[in-house]
Design a protein around this nucleic acid. Structure first.
Lengths: 199, 199
DNA sequence: CAAAAATGAATGATCGTTCATTCATTACGC
DNA sequence: GCGTAATGAATGAACGATCATTCATTTTTG
């Protein structure tokens, strides 16, 4: 078996176990078993468990960003671009429930807190302009300047746009609601309503 | 020392440790030390640690509901009542950061998942009409009937209203933004914009 | 066959929980 | 009122279970 294959198997096993049972249900022994390797093998591909956890998170972020950039046309109207991004994120989450659950678990754990802190402080690699946050940030900045988006602090605009999207995705995946294309569009539109400046 | 005092000390110690360091940072030994009692004493007031965790959550929910009902006038316009509730929740969260953090930790843990599942299934005590959810549910139902709120599934309306509120509260408490009365009002208004039916 | 990869039993640390013991308080006998 | 017995709250050392990590050994590869 090629070297990268086993690394991939370990990442996939971690994704499934953490998404389905949380970090408590994903000890190293279980991850190894799910991947079909021995416990010790984990340490040939990752320095320790924390490195594995963070590496998987980075991989998932990268996948979403790649998907979001597909079909994104930078010179469309602000509203159209926002709808594309909001519906894209929502669609990605509900078609990849395991990835969504993992990301949620990660954010609400010591891993996520440390990760955020690191991003705020020594943000040396923020020159990566393909970051999902940057796409939104530029869109919102432009919208505020053109006076089509409310003049609120950038993090607040993020919360207005993402807060409902994440909540709705969670409720869909847990089976409390059933999202379809029409509903997704209505939700993205409602988020836009909260961002849009009053005429 | 009166019996209830030690129970209260244990609840307070659990609140502080879990809020500040997560469940990982709140072993029974640490909770007891913070409360100024011995480890074993916990088991005189609570059957086990899970019971303690859930009891604290129920206590916090009760406190918020009590606060929210203060000054709530049922025959005001839909918009006014929504603004009162949204601003009230946001204000409570940012003035009680430990309680907010604990509730977030609880929701994103096996405890929270089980709690939700129990509420969905054997919901025998749902006759408690003072439940926070019920206040909102009745407000939204009335709003949809009067055609001032969008005709979307009830859980989606919850997500549109609560998603941004929770996100914003978290970012304020983590120090990423600084909320004041004006900003709180603007955010509640933005949430209302996402709920409001288009003319 | 030599080097690299994989193995999984062993290790040490940490956790929730238990329980024999201590000790302050209360109730009782005289 | 005083000495003694009974009570049960409080204690914290000890236990068993679980975890991440290590490493001597075996297996695979080239």
């Amino acid at each position: 078996m090629a070297r990268d294959d086993k690394r991939e198997l370990l990442l996939q096993a971690t994704l499934e176990l953490v998404a389905k049972q949380g970090f408590h249900g994903a000890p190293c022994a279980a991850i190894a078993e799910q991947a079909g390797v021995a416990t010790g093998t984990i340490y040939r591909y990752f320095e320790n468990k924390d490195v594995l956890i963070v590496a998987l998170y980075a991989e998932l972020e990268s996948r979403i960003t790649t998907r979001l950039m597909e079909g994104y046309v930078a010179d469309r109207p602000i509203c159209d671009r926002f709808m594309h991004l909001a519906m894209g994120v929502l669609d990605y989450f509900i078609t990849h429930p395991l990835e969504f659950k993992y990301i949620e678990q990660f954010h609400n754990s010591p891993y996520g807190t440390d990760f955020r802190r690191d991003k705020l402080l020594g943000n040396t690699e923020s020159s990566d302009s393909s970051c999902k946050c940057d796409i939104y940030k530029r869109l919102f900045t432009e919208g505020v300047e053109l006076q089509v988006i409310k003049d609120l602090p950038m993090p607040v605009l993020f919360d207005l746009a993402f807060g409902p999207v994440v909540s709705v995705a969670r409720n869909h995946i847990l089976g409390f609601i059933q999202l379809d294309d029409l509903l997704i569009q209505q939700i993205a539109r409602a988020c836009w309503d909260s961002l849009k400046r009053h005429e």
